[in-house]
Design a protein around this nucleic acid. Sequence first.
DNA 1: GCCAACGTTGGC
DNA 2: GCCAACGTTGGC
Length: 153
Amino acid sequence: MNHWLFKTEPDLFSIDDLARAPGRKTSWEGVRNYQARNFLRDQVHRGDLVLLYHSNANPTAIVGLCEITREAYPDRTALDPSSRYHDPKASEANLPWVMVDLRLKEQFVRPLTLAELRMNKLLVDLELLRKGSRLSIQPVTERQFKAILAMTR
DNA sequence: GCCAACGTTGGC
DNA sequence: GCCAACGTTGGC
């Protein structure tokens, strides 16, 4: 099993929105970066665990834990001119974007802020904490994952 | 709102 | 293939 960190801007879609969604499930559309797409398409598997992170937020923090319920399938929002994720270069014949489905397992009582994460020596190599890190789909090692979960307990 | 870091685009 | 210009991300 692989572990991941997915970013979301709570102004657009927050963990509270996910908690209110039917079955606490959602599709994860809108990824428009090739490196992130490659992770989604090739390495995110059903049953994988996902840490949810609020970016552009106050506070910026890891806010919960999710589980992948469906592996990569075409992200057709790219073809929809009215979608905020519309990709004018995409077409039926050339649709490079994929999405997955996930379900909320746990909303952390106490969000783990960036500042707090930076203080954990086990997380020095966490992609999220790297200067200039922008990747919205990030792999997390099992060690890192366990260290993060331990901070919530 | 500022701005550093990063990814993409496009001229050559 | 290089690289400058531009747009986006995202912390602060």
